[in-house]
């Protein structure tokens, strides 16, 4: 059998695919092998060419209406088929919820290892892939490697930079694959309330926790955020228990790395910190001087948010005027 070579990238999310393409290019260059994108979808052939300009050497395209409903089995069978046929050495898969399920099932079929949510990917001197990920809900960073191939990792959005467009040449390969029928049936789709701003894009985030007593009180955080040109965020209990919001920052929520993160009345439990630890500057306001959020903060205020937050907005407003 042929040996394993080439680096592959797949995600049904285009932005994420491009981000992984940038990292994939780096890995492929290190291994002196080719970088391929697997493009699966319905009427997507015309999107293939540009991916070469973003760094791919090859684009494998499977164009089929069966992909339209985003059900796992068609994707799973296409990837299994292609990976068995062409034997890539590394596969990067976008870590959306769909992507996570897909990756777990694909690597079971291929009897190989999967590192979930890798935030660092490197090649060691033995040409093995070294993947780094968060474990123990943010208490630890694990460095992992593989004993089987292909070496598969999922990658979360915003982990890597997007590549720049370049003039380069490559090959688009259309492949025919027999796709499996879905094992589940989608009987209803309900939209989620989509926020105008994606919190991952915000340069400044003012975040609130259970210290904010009423939903109306969030206004004071919004005022501060607006003045700073930022956006508000929150901890999970405010979304799941109090239902004020549909998303949250943290391990099981959004990972953010803004220039400034102002944590107001949130304790900084490890699962929350896991989502904002990489912020450039962290300010924490909490009336409990033992609050763990202070461990990861650059500026610490031990006081009541109801006193400090409005006063801070006011002080900034005055200073900006003068």
């Amino acid at each position: 059998m042929n040996e394993f070579k080439s680096v592959w990238v797949f995600s049904e999310n285009r932005d994420l695919m491009l981000e992984m393409l940038c990292k994939g290019r780096e890995l492929a260059d290190k291994l002196q092998t080719e970088l391929a994108v697997i493009l699966l979808g319905c009427k997507i052939k015309d999107q293939a060419e540009i991916l070469i300009k973003y760094g791919a050497d090859k684009v494998y395209v499977v164009d089929d209406p069966k992909f339209e409903k985003l059900q796992t089995e068609p994707y799973l069978s296409a990837l299994t088929n292609l990976a068995t046929r062409y034997r890539p050495e590394i596969i990067l898969i976008g870590s959306t919820k769909r992507g996570k399920e897909l990756a777990a099932r694909l690597t079971t079929r291929l009897e190989t290892g999967l590192v979930s949510d890798a935030f660092k990917l490197e090649i060691d001197e033995n040409k093995r892939l070294i993947a780094t990920r968060i474990v123990y809900s943010g208490n630890g960073v694990a460095t992992e490697t593989y004993q089987t191939k292909p070496q598969v990792a999922t990658v979360q959005p915003r982990t890597f930079e997007k590549p720049k467009l370049m003039e380069r040449k490559g090959q688009v390969v259309e492949v025919n694959v027999t796709l499996e029928e879905p094992k589940t049936e989608v009987i209803e789709i309900k939209p989620v309330e989509v926020k105008k701003v994606r919190i991952e894009d915000a340069r400044i985030i003012v975040s609130g926790g259970r210290g904010v007593e009423k939903k109306e009180d969030f206004k004071m955080l919004e005022d501060l955020a607006t003045l700073l040109g930022g956006y508000v965020g929150n901890t999970r209990p405010l979304a799941e228990d109090r239902k004020w919001f549909s998303e949250w920052v943290g391990l099981s929520g959004k990972k953010v790395k803004p220039d400034l993160y102002v944590a107001c009345g949130l304790s900084g439990v490890i699962q929350h910190i896991a989502g904002m630890r990489d912020s450039k500057v962290i300010v924490a306001i909490n009336k409990d001087q033992e609050a763990p959020i202070f461990q990861v903060a650059d500026y610490i205020v031990v006081d009541d948010i109801y006193q400090i937050v409005p006063a801070l907005t006011e002080a900034l407003r005055k200073m900006l005027k003068s």
Binding site: E144, R277, Q295
Partner: peptide
């Protein structure tokens, strides 16, 4: 196992 953990450290903070 096909994935092997080389080390687990606390994140630098």
């Amino acid at each position: 196992s096909s994935v092997q953990i080389l080390e687990v450290l606390a994140p630098k903070g």
